[in-house]
Design a protein around this nucleic acid. Structure first.
Length: 367
RNA sequence: CGGGGAGUGGCGCAGUCUGGUAGCGCACCCGGCUGGGGGCCGGGCGGUCGCAGGUUCAAAUCCUGUCUCCCCGACCA
């Protein structure tokens, strides 16, 4: 195993890349800007996903799923959207060995497919609101990719809602910002955020207002961790989503969209990590406690049994525990490895502890 | 797109200036000793040096072209 990491103060980008790779979160894939998310990294994402999904559902939304491909003609129906995403859209021009009659965009975001679908779903004010979310991947050919923070393909959730009134849509935008995103960031990921509104030039293409959460990373830079857009009636008009209102007249619904991505994993790394590696918030740590049995040949069985018993007790209490009984590594190696991987709490138990009826406990966060 | 850097066993690198047919650390495999902070000893497996041309008796090394990746900036979740 290699020696120490680059330090944050010397070279933060090198530190970041090294931690992501050596902690087993992700690695580069053969395609430019694409990444392989490894099991340990994906487990963190799954935990974040669960927390976000619970809150999305608690605020009244349902999940659905729409296709990866968007016909170019559909994407083009909303002018700002095509224009805004044109530089980073990947397009499929050939399939089944033939040139396609119409090129297909790989979704950079799903407003277009979704609103062309909503056109069929909204006929009356009685059909509103539509409060839907999807967990999906999206592709944006960004100029400068970075693991988790900006990858060509990323995973996210994107919510797309339709409302009868502007007030209701704006309220939705803010509910998501506060009750879903800020709550997850602060209370699950332990990352304080500033809630803000984007300037006109930074707004999502086609949006009336874009709200954002900005979080401070340990290199002193801010990271945009989630966005919630109030879209007004632009998308409804562009995609012909009209319904009969309470007074019998034609109306356009008001829209919102909002998203949070795998970037959040990178945010956790950069907001909490130190020169020894990751420090994971317990709520999203794949292993909240690791037990390292310290064994010799003569006390191996007894120590492992004691370690197993502690693990069972903790599991019964709802704690995610890993007993590191790998015989091929010594204790010191494991200490370093689990610190690199950011496990919040380590319990060491050996022959001496057994005799004394104690264990040794080390917290990762106080390093 | 502008500015840097780099492509050599799985990973990280040296060798390139001063051509002579590949080396180191880690990892991996086998054996033994060890076992409370990244153990030690011995023995192994594994690469023709991004790609394509060219020069030469001989190219990782020189020449030409080309592709890719990483970092910084602008753009972005």
């Amino acid at each position: 195993m290699c020696a120490a990491l680059p330090t944050q103060s010397n070279d933060f980008p090198a530190w970041y890349g090294d931690v992501v790779r050596r902690a087993g979160l992700a690695e580069h894939a053969p395609v430019r800007g694409a990444m392989v998310i490894k099991p340990y990294g994906f487990a963190i994402w799954e935990a974040i996903q669960r927390e976000l999904d619970d809150r999305i559902k608690a605020t009244g939304h349902e999940n659905f799923y729409l296709p990866l491909f968007v016909p170019m003609s559909v994407l083009a129906q909303e002018g700002d959207l095509v224009e805004g995403f044109a530089p980073e859209v990947a397009v499929v021009t050939e399939a089944g060995g033939k040139k396609l009659d119409e090129p297909l965009a790989v979704r950079p975001t799903s407003e277009a497919v979704i609103w062309s679908t909503y056109a069929r779903w909204v006929q009356s004010y009685r059909d509103l609101p539509l409060l839907y979310n999807q967990w999906a991947n999206a592709v944006r050919w960004e100029l400068r990719p970075r693991l988790f923070l900006r990858t060509s393909e990323f995973l996210w959730q994107e919510g797309h809602t339709a409302h009868e009134t502007e007030e209701e849509a704006v309220a939705e935008t803010l509910t998501i910002l506060h009750d879903v995103y800020a709550d997850t960031l602060e209370n699950v990921l332990a990352i304080p955020v500033l809630r803000g509104r984007k300037s006109e030039s930074e707004r999502f293409p086609g949006a009336v207002d874009t709200y954002t959460l900005e979080a401070l990373m340990r290199d002193g830079k801010a990271l945009q961790t989630a966005t919630s857009h109030y879209l007004g009636q632009g998308f409804a008009r562009a995609f012909g989503v009209r319904y009969t209102g309470r007074d019998g007249s034609d109306q356009y619904p008001y829209a919102t969209s909002w998203g949070a991505t795998t970037r959040l994993v990178g945010g956790v790394v950069m907001a909490h990590g130190d020169d020894r590696g990751l420090r994971l918030p317990p709520r999203v740590a794949p292993h909240q406690v690791v037990i390292v049995p310290i064994v010799r040949q003569d006390d191996r069985a007894a120590v492992l049994e004691a370690a197993g018993a502690i693990a069972e007790d903790l599991r019964a209490a709802g704690v995610r525990v890993r007993v590191d009984d790998r015989p091929d590594h010594r204790a010191g190696f494991k200490f370093n490895e689990w610190e690199l991987k950011g496990v919040p709490l380590r319990i060491e138990i050996g022959g001496r502890d057994l005799a004394a009826g104690t264990v040794t406990v080390a917290r990762r966060d106080t390093g």
